[in-house]
Design a protein around this nucleic acid. Structure first.
Lengths: 234, 234
DNA sequence: TTTGAAATATGACCTTTGTCATTTTTTGAT
DNA sequence: ATCAAAAAATGACAAAGGTCATATTTCAAA
């Protein structure tokens, strides 16, 4: 875990986030009103159904964002890392949270109160534009995922998910081990399938030599073959 | 088809769209630069892969927005009606179009050039905020759909889709006939399933007395029972 | 009206995926 | 290090849904 920055101005994520284009004066306002916090693995940042009071800005760590299906089954809709902001969707739509956010490991988060965030958005065209970009990108990702979920078999979606995890969190120092520990169930909830199917297919991928499994550690041995398995055109 | 308005200021959709909060002066600029057009049923407004040169604003009519799956199979991601704007996603992300837009019937559309739209967004906080709201709502819808696609059986998703079509386009004057004609294949591509499955389930719904089928005409006889079949919690 | 192509409908069948049961392994707490 | 609980792995089976073949209907053009 990196040391917590004392101010937003010094924050390592500043130019790596939606605030990258925010004017200096606005960053100051945000810095004055922010509240930082550390969440342990498994702790909730917010819960589906609750009223949003602001947005969260990840300084270090990893967070999953998930919906509760009608039958209580989790569906993970996003994986977040340092520099990512979350909780804006409900805030901007004026809704309650439609998803829950849970730390996947010890995570440093700054909380920015609703009125501060909104006011800055309304007075800083650069940041407002950046926010629209974030929303557009998220929407794009979500729509692509919709099409794949509707049209691709689980095998392809699992391969795609493993590559997505790699894109999001990267590797450990060894260059092949995924830098996040997810349970098989969580991977299944990311793919949109049953846990057993995920386990079975991971075993197959291992048998095919594409990956190595060691507890929750997953190593990507043959990224190209995995990419071919994912059968991506985009 | 309603008469085409001569100006944006007089447009029936003005306060029913993302421009509802735009300042008068900006509406004037848009009005000066807009180009209106009529698309016949089946005509394309834009095509996946093309570069966006602006946004489209529907004045009257109906449009479907769809992705091309890797195997060429269509997946409909949105249904649009008067007052809706489309083409903004690619524009804001700085991408090419990731979806194609096709008129479902004769449709009046105004085209607003990229630089005009962007400039207004940058100078009009009210409209920028409204745009973020539209994006957030779209994102929300998309994420809910993801969870349902991952977790719900086709029967429930088809019932949900029929209700969604009703919400979007409403009924004919008789109060029970869906005010849009979609092929079985299009409904399937909206649900995310095979055409045959959709046909089979529509027949079942008819047998159960929930709907009536007459060519492409679909009548909703028992909306409550359909809602129960959709099994929605949200 | 006729007619031919496209859309719809339906049956048979097969593949994929989910569910349940059981065993094995891992993990974390003592 | 030991142990209990949770997670992972695996097999057997069932169910859902897709595919293919074919019949029927609809609809628009001649």
């Amino acid at each position: 875990m990196h040391p917590s920055p004392s101010t937003c101005q010094q924050c390592a994520q500043r130019f790596n986030s939606v605030f990258c284009k925010a004017r200096e004066e606005h960053v100051e306002v945000i810095n004055d009103k922010k509240v930082c916090n550390i969440y342990k693995k498994g702790q909730q940042l917010f819960n589906e159904g609750a009223n949003p009071f602001g947005v969260f800005c990840i300084n270090d760590g990893k967070v999953k964002l998930s919906h509760q299906g009608d039958d209580g089954k989790e569906h993970i809709i996003r994986l977040l890392k340092a520099g990512d902001v979350l909780g804006y969707r409900a805030l901007l739509s004026g809704d309650r949270y439609s998803a829950s956010a849970v730390a996947l490991e010890e995570t440093q988060v700054c909380f920015i109160p609703k009125d501060v965030f909104i006011k800055v958005l309304q007075h800083d065209a650069g940041m407002a534009f950046e926010m629209m970009k974030v929303l557009s990108d998220e929407l794009h990702r979500s729509e692509i995922k919709l099409t794949h979920l509707a049209q691709k078999p689980i095998r392809e979606r699992l391969a795609e998910t493993l590559l997505f995890i790699k894109e999001t969190y990267g590797f450990e120092a060894d260059g092949i081990t995924l830098a996040v520990k997810l349970s098989r169930e969580e991977i299944a909830n990311l793919v949109g399938t049953a846990t057993e199917s995920t386990i079975r297919l991971l075993s197959e991928f291992k048998k095919d030599g594409m990956i190595e499994l060691e507890g929750k550690k997953i190593q990507i041995l043959k990224p190209k073959q995995l990419l071919a398995t994912a059968n991506l055109q985009d």
